[in-house]
Design a protein around this nucleic acid. Structure first.
Lengths: 221, 221
DNA sequence: GGCCTTCGTGTACAATTGACACCATGCGCA
DNA sequence: TGCGCATGGTGTCAATTGTACACGAAGGCC
């Protein structure tokens, strides 16, 4: 029995996130074609018949923004009829996390998540959903480190957590807990970032995290 | 600019779960058509151009199993090329939770989650993913109650948690914590379920849970 | 009435969370 | 060169939460 003729278009949309100090920013582009020509939108595109969804997301990012080698994670699939005026388009949304320094986008703008403009389609809904997911996920997984450079200070980690959770955390308690997880390797390197004492650099150790995970432990802030 | 011609089929698959004492069971059906004719599989079907994904899942359940009015939640979208030998089929998987008494399925069998047979396509992967999701979700949301009748004893709640988490919980601690959340209303009703003291019935109160959630509290067992 | 089974409850200790303040270090400037 | 300024880095105590653990109560059955 052959497949029926497809009648639904499948696309991917990418929420590309970047942490700029205490500000979480996402890359928006202006729609180059109708509908919503000129409106801000998430980078996205149709899935090709021979590529996986994740590959499609990676391709879209590379083509539309020039960004490569990012962490990708499926967020949710939005498929209400009517979300695209052209016809039935179902979209798989992917979260993509990039480390500083922020790649200069081929086009579009890094837009603060808390000052979003009018967006095409249901992209505002998608962004809200992404923010929620990231917030929850921070509590039991080390996604935060995917937004930091390979080597970072504890302050930067705290900045990341505060930006995503949207609230201030106590410095001493934060460090105590973070270090007690034993997933960070202190380096013999320091950075000067102003007229004050330099801060130690750390590195996140993936395999230590894996071991923790097997024992069922989780982050909780 | 018109839409390109669709080249990808979109389907939904349903993980219908039911709690049978300490056993979590899912409804599997034998594939009535090739490929994998006669092999056990999740109930599923193609999405129609005019229905939402969730509506498609509900329809598939109603038609293939006769089950209606269930809790539905999108699990994940599986879209690797090659997952269906007929061509490119991307499937949105939905978890569906039903309360006892177990509906008698129009076809298929309630199969224990820990004794799954060979399955068509990537349906084993999908079921593993579902089990994981349910386990995590139990920790911060009241999904467990969606597997129980409207009125239930504390023992039944504990059974549900133990079945899903796969480990025994201490009765006194479990009850203490559950009741401290103040989301259960004790009823002036008791059930006799054997030659022993009857147990009190409780009811889950959705709006009390909503209030808790706003304050940021979560279940953790 | 005695036995069996599950119901329902409290305490004590350990671990974790959360509040809170001060000295250290290095830069810049007078 | 020394003083001021800014951030780095650390510990203690109280409150809360988690965890281990045992026994009388209620009702059916024989």
């Amino acid at each position: 029995m052959p497949l029926p003729r497809p009648q639904i278009q499948l696309s991917v949309d990418c929420i590309l996130l970047f942490l700029d100090g205490h500000t979480l920013r996402t890359l928006l582009i202006r729609r180059p074609i109708p509908p919503h020509l000129g409106t801000w939108a998430l980078p996205g595109g149709f899935v090709r018949p021979d590529e996986s969804l994740e590959a499609a997301a990676a391709r879209v990012l590379a083509v539309e923004t020039g960004v490569r080698d990012v962490y990708l994670e499926q967020l949710y699939t939005f498929g209400d009829p009517g979300r695209d005026p052209r016809g039935r388009v179902v979209t798989a949304a992917y979260i993509a996390l990039v480390r500083p320094p922020a790649p200069e986008p081929r086009e579009g703008a890094w837009t603060p998540m808390d000052a979003l403009p009018d967006l095409a389609f249901d992209h505002l809904t998608i962004l809200d959903y992404a923010r929620q997911r990231l917030k929850y996920k921070l509590e039991y997984s080390p996604v935060g480190f995917r937004l930091l450079p390979e080597e970072f200070t504890l302050k930067r980690v705290q900045d990341a957590y505060e930006a995503i959770l949207g609230r201030a955390l106590d410095k001493r308690n934060f460090r105590k807990k973070l270090l007690s997880l034993k997933v960070l390797k202190p380096l013999a390197k320091f950075v000067r970032e102003g007229p004050h004492r330099p801060a130690r650099l750390y590195r996140f150790e993936e395999e230590k995290w894996e071991r923790l995970k097997e024992k069922g432990n989780v982050f909780v802030f």
